[in-house]
Simulated scan of single mutants.
Amino acid sequence: MSSVAKNIKTLFGQYKVLALGIAIVLIWSFFGYMTMTDDGSSFLTSRNFSNLLRQMAITGMLASGMVFVIIAGEIDLSVGSLLGLLGGLAAVLDATYKVPVAGTIAIVCFGGVLAGLINGYWVSYLRVPSFIVGLAGMLAFRGVLVGLTQGSTVPVESAGLIAIGQAYLPANIGYILALALFALLVFISLRTRANRAKYNLTIAPMWQDALKLGLTGALIFGFVHTLESYQGVPVPVLVLLVIAGAFSFMANSTVFGRRIYAIGSNLEATRLSGVNVQFVKMTIFGIMGLMCAFAGLTTTARLASGSPSAGNMGELDAIASCFIGGTSMRGGAGTVSGAMIGALIMTSLDNGMSMLGVETFWQMIVKGSILLLAVWVDVMSGSNER
């Protein structure tokens, strides 16, 4: 094993979050420098940062569901097309049938869960490989979308629906939420220390936890201050943060979350231990469908229309976000927070290259190369462990 491979394993294993943070700083610094004008950098502005995060929210929603699919040892290639279909359904319900916003949201979410469960049923109970099920869904959902919209853009008329993707929280609400989040993190940290002490487990020095909380708090308030400097916290970003928090709790603190990791790590042993593996897998795909519904609603609201091309290649961004964030392609390992950081990296590349006027084909080449590199790092780390 070469020294380069060892260094890569150490960097992306033990210091994975730090490595991803460094990558974001380098990407932002590069695009900040390349978009520099006499008035300053057009990339490093609160307005562009707000737009970037609102753009990232859609990829983050897909990645937050995809990370569990991959951890369980499966893949879903249909999420981009399902996003487009559900977004198109929302536009048609609003523009053609004048369904109230609450009804539109309920129908779209139900449709997303149903489509996800159907995918999961094919994979879990009918034993069709998830790659084939996802590929079939990619084609079928896109075909239904084109038929539903008759191949043309459907404008959205409801201000309430549009607000889902374009509205901001009232001024200073972001600071209140940031303070509440920081207080929650402090509570969780103290509770974790108390529980470890109760069972005589090793406890990190107080100064380490205090330093982590201090850095986290600085990032949270810096993040909120930047958004408040423009128009406030975008609603899609808030929704994404709630989803990420709920899914992180599910992954780390629930029996269902532990079962997902167990299935990806050793499917047969998990089955023999009494876990209903088929039901768990089908449920994961149902969650993925719900995230497609959220992403589809946000996309349609952000564009104020339903497009037959919406969500095109969205599965690439979601899968790449997970792999960049450290999710193992072999299953059994990955985090929601890592997938969120991966989504931020992918969106930053999209945003920065678009601002530089990079041709679309070059953008696709860059993103594909990064996906290949992320999987190579995962394979390298795995081969070193054996």
Rank of each mutant, 00 (worst) to 15 (best):
M291P: 01
A102T: 10
N266R: 06
I176H: 09
L77Y: 08
S383Q: 15
F49W: 15
L240N: 03
S321K: 11
A204C: 00
T270Y: 09
L26M: 13
G112W: 08
G217M: 02
G137Q: 12
A163Y: 02
G84D: 06
Q278H: 11
A304L: 02
M206H: 12
I173A: 06
N195I: 12
V79D: 04
L86D: 04
F31Y: 15
I203T: 12
A374L: 03
M288Q: 11
S29K: 02
F49E: 14
M346A: 02
A19E: 00
K9Y: 04
G40D: 12
I220F: 02
V101W: 01
S2G: 15
L241T: 06
I284A: 01
M1V: 10
G134P: 00
A262K: 11
Q231W: 05
F68N: 03
S130T: 04
G342P: 06
I71C: 10
V113P: 08
G21L: 10
T45P: 00
L62M: 08
D317F: 14
V233H: 10
L93T: 01
V277T: 15
V154W: 08
R386F: 15
A136G: 15
V4S: 08
S248V: 00
M250Q: 07
T37V: 05
T299Q: 11
L53A: 10
R302I: 03
K6D: 01
V377C: 01
L148C: 09
I341W: 13
D39S: 13
I188M: 14
L213W: 09
A343S: 14
S64E: 01
M380L: 15
T298Y: 01
K198Q: 12
G88H: 06
N384F: 13
K16C: 00
S328Y: 07
G65K: 07
T254H: 13
P205L: 08
R193T: 14
F12T: 05
V186N: 02
L86R: 06
S130D: 07
L349A: 11
A204M: 13
D209W: 05
L297S: 10
I203S: 05
L349D: 11
P155T: 06
F256L: 10
A320C: 11
F323D: 01
P236Y: 13
K198C: 00
S78L: 07
P129F: 13
L290F: 15
R330E: 04
S46V: 03
K98R: 11
S305L: 07
Q363H: 09
Q363Y: 07
L169P: 02
A374Y: 09
V79E: 03
V101H: 01
K6T: 04
V375A: 05
L89C: 02
N312H: 09
L297T: 10
L184D: 00
G296Q: 05
W207E: 02
L272W: 07
V379H: 04
G165E: 05
D350I: 11
T35A: 03
G217F: 02
I22S: 06
G87W: 05
T45I: 01
M346K: 12
L18W: 11
